[in-house]
Amino acid sequence: MNKSKKQDLKKEDLPSFEDYRDLPHIPVSIGVKGSMGNTGEWRTFRPVINLSACNKCGFCYIYCPEGTIKFDKETGPMVDYIYCKGCGVCARECPKDAITMRRETEQVCENDEDD
């Protein structure tokens, strides 16, 4: 993944607890982007979208279980690789087979859309 991308949350922004008695009953996060951390780091395979084959149907955007695909009717879908876990649901659902899952270590060829 692109290491130059800035993290949304810094470690020093997170609450830290020195004493268990200061903890609430349960851990709860407010609904902010990336409250689970940079989940893109979990990824083994990355979805790569071939925009020339894409018909902009938006299936990938709808099916993404993590909301990490942005969709624009003009330019088509775009994956947020900071948070995409690489589950592959988008590639499976794409009716045009325009999304391929590539091993993270694999070089992405020039024609493919980068993030």
Binding site: F17, Y20, P27, V28, I30, M36
Partner: peptide, 20 residues
Amino acid sequence: PIVHGNLLMPQQEYMEFRYK
């Protein structure tokens, strides 16, 4: 909106929540 049932990493407070 909130997220509950979060993932706690080994060095975070999973052990403290259990002890509580």
